[in-house]
Design a protein around this nucleic acid. Structure first.
Lengths: 209, 209
DNA sequence: GCGCACACGTGATCC
DNA sequence: TGGATCACGTGTGCG
C-alpha cells in the first residue's frame, strides 16, 4: 500500500482505481471475444464450460494437425497386400464426335522394385499410349501406381471396328501390366516372404529411372 | 448480502467462503493448464499474451481447417498457368525422437517437356532423397508434379545443426526445382508463345523416360 | 508515476 | 443448500 489513513481513498487513488478496473474489463472482453469466436468455429460448443471448451479446442487442433499432415503425405490409401491390375476406359464425352480421344485409367499394385516405373513407361510407349497423369505410392516394399493414359489419335482403328479395337487395346494394356507386375510367374521362385522382411529390405525409390 | 452485523463473519460463513475461493482457484488452474497446452502446441507462443495467444489459436485453426479440407478434396488438379515451386517440411511427430524421418513435399509447376521427369529424378537422387509418392499431371503443355520425398537417415546432420541443415536442405531442393523448371532463365529465348500454340504442340508424355 | 498483464477473492446466478 | 460457473474489482509485479 502506498499511502493510507483510517477512512477512505484520496481522490487521485479513486480515479486511478476506476481506470484500472476499466482496463481490466477491456482485457476480459478481449479474451472472452476470442473464446466466443472459437466457440463459433468448433461444432457443439455452444454454452459449454470455458475450460472444457478449451479442451475441445486442443483436441480439435490435434486432430486437424494430424489430418492436414497425413493428407499432404498420403492422400490415397495404402498399397494393398495382394497384387491387382485394373483397367478402365474413358472416352472423353461420348457425344462429342470430333476429337476421338480415349483415356485409359490403368492401376497396378505389386511389390515395388527399382525398374518398375521404367518397365511401365516402356510398356505404355510400346502401346502408343501417352501418360497424362500418374499417381504413385511406394510403402513398405509395396507399390500402387495409377496412370491416366491417352490414345490421342485412333487413326489406325477409326472406322468400323472401333469398339472391337478398344476392347483389344484394353486387354493388351491389362496383359502388359500383368507381365510387369509379376515378370516371373510360372517360375518356381518362392512367393513366401514375410511382410516384415520386405519392409526391411525396401528402400526403393519409385523414381529411380 | 445474506446476513451481516457490524463486525466480522460467522464461522460457517468464513468456512464456506474459503471453500468457495479454493474451488475458484481450481477452476482457474484448469483453464490455465489448457492454455499452457495450447501454448505448447502452437509455434512461437511462448510467454505471449493470453488474449493474443487465443488469437493465434483461432488463426491456426482456420489455417488447418483450410489445409485439411483442400487436401481431402484435391482442389488443385489443373496445372496453373504461372510457374511455381513450393517446398514443405514434415518431420513425423516432433517429440518422437527415435526415428528421425523427414518428409518433404515438393511441388513444381512449369511447361511440360520430355526430359522433365528424368531431370527431377536426377535432382532428387543427387540430394539423396527417395521418392515415396508422386502425383504428376500434364495438360495443355503445362505440368504440375507433386512429390513426397523422404530423407531416411539424417546421420550426417543429426546433432546440433539439425534445424539449420533442414533449412538448407529445403533451400537446396527449392533451387534444384527452380533450375529444372526454367533451365534457360537469363538467356534471351523468347518467353512469348501463345497458350494455344503450346497446347497444339504438346504431346509430351510425363513418363517418356 | 503509468500501462499492462496476471492471480486472487468475492458476490451473483443457475441447476 | 451446495456445487459449479461467471464477471467484477482489486492487489501486485514488471518495464
Amino acid at each position: 500500500m502506498s499511502s493510507s489513513s483510517g477512512s477512505g481513498r484520496s481522490a487521485t487513488e479513486a480515479r486511478a482505481l476506476k481506470i484500472h478496473s476499466e482496463a481490466e474489463r477491456r482485457r476480459r472482453e478481449r479474451i472472452n471475444a476470442h473464446l466466443a469466436t472459437l466457440r463459433r468455429m468448433i461444432p457443439d460448443t455452444r454454452q459449454m464450460d470455458k475450460a472444457t471448451l478449451l479442451a475441445r479446442v486442443i483436441e480439435q487442433v490435434k486432430l486437424l494437425k494430424r489430418k492436414a499432415s497425413e493428407a499432404t503425405t498420403q492422400s490415397t490409401p495404402l498399397p494393398p497386400e495382394t497384387d491387382e491390375v485394373s483397367i478402365e476406359l474413358h472416352t472423353g464425352d461420348a457425344n462429342a464426335g470430333a476429337d476421338r480421344v480415349i483415356y485409359i485409367r490403368a492401376s497396378i499394385s505389386c511389390d515395388d522394385r527399382p525398374d518398375l516405373v521404367a518397365r511401365l513407361a516402356q510398356a505404355f510407349h510400346g502401346l502408343r499410349l501417352r501418360t497424362v497423369r500418374a499417381d504413385m505410392t511406394s510403402l513398405g516394399g509395396r507399390a500402387r501406381h495409377v496412370f491416366i493414359l491417352c490414345k490421342d489419335e485412333g487413326r489406325g482403328a477409326a472406322g468400323v471396328g472401333a469398339s472391337a479395337s478398344l476392347r483389344s487395346l484394353k486387354e493388351a494394356v491389362r496383359q502388359a501390366l500383368a507381365r510387369v507386375a509379376s515378370p516371373e510367374t510360372a517360375y518356381g521362385s518362392s512367393p513366401f516372404q514375410s511382410k516384415r522382411q520386405r519392409i526391411l529390405d525396401s528402400h526403393y525409390s519409385i523414381m529411380s529411372i
